[in-house]
Amino acid sequence: MRQPKDQIMEPVASNNVEESINNTGSASVLQKNGLTRRDLLWCAGGAAVTLGLGAAIKAFGSEDVLRPPGGQNEDRLLALCLRCQKCTEACPRHAIVPLGTESGFITMRTPTMDYHLGDCDYCVEENDGIPLCVAACPTEALHLGEEATRNNTVIGEPLLIKNWCLAYRLTRCRDCYDVCKLDAIRLDSADRPHIEWDKCNGCGECEHVCRSMTAGTPVPGATHRAIIIVPMGQGGEM
């Protein structure tokens, strides 16, 4: 226990000098209680950048994207979403992914639907039809009203490209028809799929199972599956 004391005394040797420095220091302070010029520059820069950033990002704009249930009001979602990615974590079917830079900067890291890993069944199987993503969202950026149901919460609509669809090559593929739980796909006399527009809610199950362009069944010229879910107004049979 003696050693520490010795050591403590050591720096003390220069005490007086230090003290005097401190005193002259306080006397020669140029700015008493305000900000230095450099500080003010930082302040001005900070204000300019934060406001400029907001304007620039907004002006850059964004494309329409699919949103998880409850995120259909785009303005509300952009305003309230913290980009925390909790909804991505919450989705038991891995249907929600955060957006990258593809569709604009303002939407970056906000949630969108990607039906490659799974579809959205409105959490019927996993949570009795109470969407887990909506429950997880800390800011209610995803928000469903009282009257919201699986059927009237429309995420997007299908785009069916007949040229790429195996059924239109008379292969009798009907996977999408078989999985659709809302009976939104009907088969014609040649067993080719057609969309029942007023029944589809964009759940993505058809896209998820579509055989075209999935492993083993490449289709010449195709860039994506024969049936995909796209934002409202962009769908159709073509």
Partner: peptide, 8 residues
């Protein structure tokens, strides 16, 4: 601007 600018 209607979105959490800094969060981005």
């Amino acid at each position: 601007f209607g979105f959490p600018v800094f969060c981005l």
